[in-house]
Design a protein around this nucleic acid. Structure first.
Lengths: 114, 114
DNA sequence: TGCGTATATAATCATATAGTTATATACTTA
DNA sequence: TAAGTATATAACTATATGATTATATACGCA
């Protein structure tokens, strides 16, 4: 029998977090790119606290990590997290979201710090 | 680029449904076995309407299908559903739940109709 | 036909969730 | 140090969710 990589209860917690359009899209984006809070605010057209709260939930379970660079805080996928392998096959099946970053570049709202 | 197999919005809906311990365990069980409502009631120790409502949600998105056999209604995974391929790699990573059916057999509450 | 069992649905309720506004904190730069 | 920008947190609110109880429906069998 194949060894299960995650426990049932934990899996449900992770999946509940993924079961939100905003967070799911964030994770798909972060799988390839690093993004800061203000970029997400621009992309999703919701308030900055709303974005911060989504990111906090993802951070609390260890799915994403943050790194401050000057005035911005950049978020990225935490690929060393236990659940990353659980996440990968899932994210692979989602449609590419890079067009959203392209839109930011066209608007001049993409942050390319450092 | 790999073709995405599901749309973002739909994926979030499915994942939200999976983000519940009861439903996730149900799906893991149904991936290998057919179960009826009263078995789930016994397994999860919640009310029968609660189980019916979980199954309804899974049925509404087409993840499971039902088949009446006499007085029982047996549920199984709908492997022809669009989202089944989305589900598979996920379920594979979950711990085997067959012990729950073994417990039913020991209790004499397992239904093996026909 | 009437009773028992299995399941579904309706109504209700407590709690969780995702958003908002207001405010605090942290960094940059003049 | 003061002003401006970026982010986090607190408080609040409307809605969604998962459970319960009560009731309806469907089937099997005496």
């Amino acid at each position: 029998m194949v060894k299960a990589s995650v426990e049932m209860e934990q899996a449900a917690v992770i999946l509940k977090l993924l079961g939100d359009r905003t967070r799911l899209t964030m994770l798909k984006l972060l799988d390839e790119h690093t993004c800061c809070v203000c970029e997400f605010v621009e992309i999703f057209q919701v308030s900055q606290p709303s974005i911060s709260q989504h990111l906090r939930k993802l951070r609390d379970v260890g799915l994403v990590k943050e790194e401050r660079k000057g005035q911005w805080i950049f978020y990225s996928l935490n690929k060393t997290n236990t659940y990353y392998t659980f996440l990968v096959p899932l994210l692979e099946q989602l449609p590419d979201q890079r067009y959203r970053l392209k839109e930011l570049e066209e608007n001049g709202t993409r942050i390319n710090c450092c």
